[in-house]
Computed example of a mutant assay.
Amino acid sequence: MKYNRVVLKLSGEALAGEQGYGIDPIIIQSIAKQIKELIDLEVEVAIVVGGGNIWRGMAGSAKGMDRATADYMGMLATVMNSLALQDSLETMGVETRVQTSIEMRQVAEPYIRRKAIRHLQKKRVVIFAAGTGNPYFSTDTTSALRAAEIEAEVILMAKNNVDGVYSADPRVNKDAKKYDTLTYMDVLKDGLQVMDSTASSLCMDNDIPLVVFSITEEGNIKRAVLGEEIGTFVKGK
């Protein structure tokens, strides 16, 4: 293995499949199967799931909703996605724990750094839900923050609509150039839509590399962990 402890960032849209909203059980099962492959290889896996397939705080705010309220609703959407993923993993025999930044003990553990690391050492998958617990911060920032806290070796950013980082949206601009490698300084300087600036700065400051790749092809998560050249590799420094 190139990486022994990873943070896997899944967008909410990745769980929706072709329908574009909600949770597609077939997609969830496919992702869970790929995660199980990593556990079988004794890789320590932490996951951060977005909530865009159910609710987007920014969209609610743009329509006149209080931004903090809209963001808290988005955090609850990530909990729903996390529980769905946990259920799918456990049906495959993978021990999984959901830890939330907003306390809700009836459905998940509160986030405790030392406990999360202990779960990982016992080869349990840990899913970090409810973002950072604060409005105005994205799940990209959550990924960077949790990766730094648990000392993950890499963030694997699985996308459902692109296979890496491009100079422009390849679905709109056919001349968009795909990058094989970048630095976080390039990302910030050129305004590339990889992560938000807070997340990128956090990763750069803590020297956490990032691999951006497509999740639509089964086996790509394993390939990324093995260190194969897929997608785009963003260097920490």
Rank of each mutant, 00 (worst) to 15 (best):
E153Y: 06
T141R: 01
S138T: 10
P135G: 03
A147Q: 07
P135S: 00
Q106Y: 13
S101I: 09
H119Y: 15
I112P: 08
L156E: 03
M104K: 13
I112M: 11
E153A: 03
A108P: 06
Y111L: 09
S143I: 12
M92Q: 10
S143C: 14
Q86H: 12
Q86S: 11
D87C: 15
Q121L: 02
I155Y: 04
A129G: 09
V162A: 11
E90S: 09
M104L: 14
Q106N: 13
I127N: 03
K115V: 10
V79R: 10
V126R: 01
L89I: 04
A158L: 04
T142Y: 08
N81I: 01
E95H: 07
A84N: 01
M104Q: 13
L83G: 07
K122C: 08
V107E: 11
T141G: 05
S88Y: 00
K123I: 12
R118F: 14
Y111N: 02
L85N: 01
A116T: 11
I112L: 14
V162P: 03
E90P: 00
E109W: 09
L145D: 11
A158Y: 06
G133D: 01
A148K: 13
Q86V: 01
H119L: 12
D87N: 15
L120R: 03
L156Y: 00
S138K: 00
A158G: 02
R97W: 07
T132H: 04
A144L: 04
R118V: 09
F128I: 06
A147P: 03
L83N: 01
V126G: 02
F137N: 03
K115F: 13
I112E: 12
L89P: 05
F128E: 04
E95Y: 06
P135W: 02
R97S: 03
Q86M: 14
F137K: 04
I150W: 09
V126K: 02
L85S: 09
R97E: 03
T139Q: 04
R113P: 11
A129F: 06
L89E: 01
